[in-house]
Write a protein that binds this DNA or RNA. Structure first.
Lengths: 144, 144
DNA sequence: TATAAATAGGATAAAATTATCCGAAATAAA
DNA sequence: TTTATTTCGGATAATTTTATCCTATTTATA
């Protein structure tokens, strides 16, 4: 469904959100440990999240990554997915046709439409806050 | 969503089904032309479909690929996807956790569950026949 | 039986994705 | 101002996916 990069990005954002609620910044090393991902690769993905204004990075000693607490509830899963995997999951034809729409549909166009729209709705309406709280409460997990 | 190989596989199966209704066999060359795919790669994918008993191959002169007409309505999209991409689309965690279930869910487990189940239902209940008829009637297209 | 026409399948190659490494730049604090 | 800490970013490597090529094998038919 998502690329590895995107999976790491989502999990990293959730962990940064949790730590940000505690007023703490985190390093790629801590993140990689917490979400069970390769550290250097995770750092690259964090750069993408920074460029898309999803997380803030503070350079230098005592630096790290954080998310402005007041933003955590505003950030939706869709933004993270879009920052890393782009919009292909919403837009591209399920069978790879270059042109695929109501006028010129692929054989599964209608069947996929409903599923894709449900996915889109879910991603656009799930906030980082919600996911972070699930982890904090112990109702969900970031690794294993 | 699906791999390129799987996209080609689905489109190839649809085309073979159409030709099989006409009592004709088709070659990888014809298929690749019709679905706009790389020929040699398509041939490899056809081998996988043959191994999974989704299409029949007849070797030698006047050979080619075909699907027993009486089977076309029985073959579901899910079988094709499974033959090429395996069952990861149904089974794997959306965030890549090795263990992800009700007892130990990833943060998006519940949210993905509904979508994945809808996808599964759709794939298991869409027949090759239905898709082939869509192409035959001109209601859908295999390329461009 | 010889020949031409097909698929099968192994060996490679190309491209994309995933992953690692290291030096540069920035910053807080001694 | 120096040092230690930290992100940034370019170069490179490993792996997976996608794609190509060539030969072997099979089979209908002349």
């Amino acid at each position: 469904m998502f690329s590895k990069a995107c999976e790491y990005g989502i999990k990293a954002a959730i962990f940064i959100a949790i730590k940000s609620y505690e007023g703490k910044r985190v390093s790629p090393k801590e993140i990689a440990l917490e979400i069970n991902s390769p550290q250097a690769f995770t750092a690259k993905i964090l750069q993408a999240l920074v460029k898309h204004d999803i997380v803030c990075s503070i350079k230098g000693a005592h630096g790290g990554f954080e998310i402005d607490s007041s933003n955590i509830s505003k950030i939706k899963l869709a933004q993270i997915v879009n920052a890393i995997d782009g919009d292909s999951i919403y837009k591209e034809c399920g069978l790879g046709l270059h042109k695929c729409d109501e006028d010129h549909p692929c054989p599964v166009h209608d069947k996929f439409k409903a599923i894709r729209e449900e996915l889109k709705y879910m991603l656009e309406n799930t906030s980082l806050e919600e996911l972070a709280l699930n982890i904090k409460s112990g109702a969900a997990f970031l690794k294993v």
